[in-house]
Design a binder for these strands. Sequence first.
DNA 1: CTAGTTTTTGTTACCGATAACAATATCCCT
DNA 2: AGGGATATTGTTATCGGTAACAAAAACTAG
Lengths: 340, 340
Amino acid sequence: MPKIKTPTMSDVARLTGFSSMTVSRALRADTSTSDETRLKILDAADKLGYVLDGTAAGLSSRKTGFVAVIIPSINNANFAFTVRGLTEGLRNSGLQVLLGYTDYKMDEEERLVKTLLTRRPEALVITGGVHTERCRQYLYSSGVPIVEMWDSPPSPIDHVVGFSNARAGRIMARHLYDQGYRKIGFIGGDTDSDIRGADRRRGFVETISDFGLGTDRLWQSDQPVLTMAGGAKAMHELLDQYPDTDAVMCASDLSAFGAMMTCQKRGLTIPDDIAIAGFGAYDISANALPEITTIDVGARGIGTQVAEVIKSSLADKTHSKDPANIDIPTRLIVRKSTAG
Amino acid sequence: MPKIKTPTMSDVARLTGFSSMTVSRALRADTSTSDETRLKILDAADKLGYVLDGTAAGLSSRKTGFVAVIIPSINNANFAFTVRGLTEGLRNSGLQVLLGYTDYKMDEEERLVKTLLTRRPEALVITGGVHTERCRQYLYSSGVPIVEMWDSPPSPIDHVVGFSNARAGRIMARHLYDQGYRKIGFIGGDTDSDIRGADRRRGFVETISDFGLGTDRLWQSDQPVLTMAGGAKAMHELLDQYPDTDAVMCASDLSAFGAMMTCQKRGLTIPDDIAIAGFGAYDISANALPEITTIDVGARGIGTQVAEVIKSSLADKTHSKDPANIDIPTRLIVRKSTAG
DNA sequence: CTAGTTTTTGTTACCGATAACAATATCCCT
DNA sequence: AGGGATATTGTTATCGGTAACAAAAACTAG
């Protein structure tokens, strides 16, 4: 590694004979120089291996080009798709995603918000609508547009692009009921960490309760159950206690798959002996055997919409518009695993 | 959103009566002030809702605290684990991961390297050892430590934390041979985008060729085949052409799972009629029925090691040490899907 | 050809922090 | 008590760009 000092704009300026201001202009798209000088400058910059210092540019222009994005987990296809949608939606605006993940921990989220605000993002996107008080405080006083996504918070901080997770639970409960199932269980974690999973559970329980069905087949844990192994284990326990369960909704397709494997290991046929439903329209639900009924919220589309909200919010100099509140439709995908 | 100007260090300084230099010192761990003033300053900063401007701090100290990390896909559990290991390994050093993904495209990688260098990272981590010429140029002249990971490049740019993908292919080929399979196929993409998958294929082909087996059962595509659906489709085509195939290695556990589903749909029993092996030790391989034989490279551990390499490289002021070249062991996990 | 307009380039003053050095204040020991 | 060492705080310059304004050059039209 040669430890040569990185060239700066002044170096390019010196080489071309222009002032560094002209160099700055030549390197940016929205500013004007004559074509001739621009070419000369680009050429010299290339020759020197000049790379713009975004740190300095951001400090000076008060525009860092960062959009901070906070998701619960980086190892989750749904959030990954949202980030993709976001990244691509922002690319043409020259905005770059600065990603952080919380591991489904609220205090980690708070820490992360603080760290990310340090980078002076032009907007901040956060997953869910429940945060620590101090975290809300940081967000409120950040002075940049905030987007809460993947949820439908009762009192949003600013913009929202999400959906009601409770509604998703209700939709699935109704579907299972419509298919004729009456001994329906749920597998999912508790309230403190996977808040959205817990909301789905709540909607689910409300609905089967409305239908007059028992709500005792609710498996739960103090950890989020969003993994295959977690779903598999939970299903064992549920079946041990309630062997006659005829349908189960899981908080995620991954746990649904695990649960289905458990059933198959125990010699149960899906859906004849027991129906399984998931959430999230992960790859696995479309490729498992049998295919698993799920709910699609268009994870990528959420990202795309968030990008639009951010762009329009940043373009709106007057701050006249009301915060956006976009409701993403939740689409039930009926597959063989619940073919009553 | 109240559009109040964000407070700066001078504001904190004014409020406390100290100079902004003292404020700066009080806010950092490695610098000294008296306990009394530090408390006063922290208190005032809290009251004002002051958040450090990392942009300015980075410009001034020439240390941004960023580590740029480039992975092929954000929607991949293996790379996600590596990023986790990396993030956690760097956390206590105050370094933050700035993540980008290439979608397995070399020109996108080049673009990304340039964009990320703009942010003046203190180190840059990149997946794989094959890059465009211009990209190598950027990396060489960046002046920061570079780590290539997940591969074992013949001529490394700087540090390496990886393994030989060809070796992984060889290990699996030998395993299948040892289990008694003789009509062995491979499902995977081509060289241009999933380079590491192609390397595994190469090692695989070499080995079965050494064993005197035919190398005609090689399914391939001009796209990387790393998805369940891709594996499922490929397996159909492979079986149509070579119905007597008795074992298949796939470039990824995901395609292996898809392939296995295809076999089951066609009435084939795993492993009695046909064996299936994957790569990557994804969750699915441990939870599928039957469980899928795979190769684990300890994705998280790669991240941890990369973090160590970076930390020691940044600590080494004299640049006396040679670049690290860490070989990650590839561990074969034998499961039921190849229980000959 | 000249005044007015537009285009292109330059000058100066920051953006918000920290490094490096300087100046006090405090401490400790003989 | 005095002098050197140490701890604490302040001053100044600077990091590498860009905004805002100013000036020079090129163009336009009457």
